[in-house]
Design a protein around this nucleic acid. Structure first.
Lengths: 158, 158
DNA sequence: GCATAACAGTCGCAGTTGCAACAATAGCGG
DNA sequence: CCGCTATTGTTGCAACTGCGACTGTTATGC
């Protein structure tokens, strides 16, 4: 498909805006491409959704963790976490135990089945990350990491 | 909130995965932060949703464009575009004209009102982008752009 | 010229999301 | 103690999303 032409690719002085050169758009699009590509892998392999993947990855990283902590660590809204936990529980990949000193809190752990799938997921993730870095090239990947770090340290808290 | 500790921040050799060090996750999170921050601006100012913003930006960039072209240029599914167009039409910010030689196609243009809001949107976008780059610092912003470019050229088509 | 395929844009539907409200529990101030 | 506030996790709801099916139209092959 050929698009009509009107503007140059770089942000012009004024009056107009080239979407394809606009940093927030480019960032969103790049993230979307990577996210979809990786999601295809774990969806096909384990049938997991994105929130479920993040939740499982977080539970596996810490052995025992609460829903609120999962949300904080994986940047997800608590309802997303709640639903992901329920889904993983229905698969019998995790168990919950109510904290006996604070009964609002539930501690979540992987079952044996959950650990098996978690290990597989980790290996899938490392493989994909390696492939991604290889595709981007050392310098591309390094620059991307530095750019993301800048966002994490200088934008995240505002 | 304090999280339980178990793993170091860097990707360990094997067996486990640190989400906060996993590139696809960091990229998704960084994009989310920026996207939300910018979305707050145009939502508060114009009441636009993200798809509507992208659509308006694309229509303004080309003077006259079709729905399919908008989707291709702004990386949006055609139903998203269709709904965004309808919403903008209801605001009377755009008009459509059926192509007389191919009546499947509709050409979309901004109305006077639409142009006014588009100009404001462009200025908002430039201001935000400048503020973002200033926050990231020249080198952070440059590295981010290079990293994104690597994704665009080396990953996008696979 | 006619059947068939391809294409533009829309719509219904089912699945997902975030928000606000909620129940249950815990902490705090007097 | 007792009332008020804060916190944990869940739920109802309304909005948004992508998919597939659909309508109307144009292009293609025989």
């Amino acid at each position: 498909m050929t698009l009509p032409q009107r503007q140059s690719a770089d942000t012009p002085g004024d009056g107009s805006l080239a979407l394809e050169g606009f940093l927030p758009y480019r960032l969103a699009r790049a993230a979307e491409i990577i996210s979809r590509q990786f999601a295809t892998l774990y969806r096909e392999r384990h049938g997991l959704t994105r929130p479920e993947w993040r939740t499982l990855a977080t539970i596996g990283q810490f052995n025992r963790i609460t829903a609120t902590e999962i949300g904080a660590h994986s940047s997800m809204h608590k309802t997303k976490v709640s639903r992901a936990i329920r889904a993983l529980e229905e698969r019998k990949w995790i168990t919950r135990q109510v904290d006996q000193t604070d009964r609002r809190v539930e501690h979540i752990e992987l079952t044996r089945d959950g650990r098996t799938h978690y290990r597989d997921l980790v290996s899938l993730a490392h493989t994909y990350e390696a492939k991604l870095i290889e595709m981007l090239g050392k310098s591309g990947a390094d620059q991307l990491e530095e750019g993301i770090s800048a966002i994490e340290t200088k934008v995240a808290g505002s």
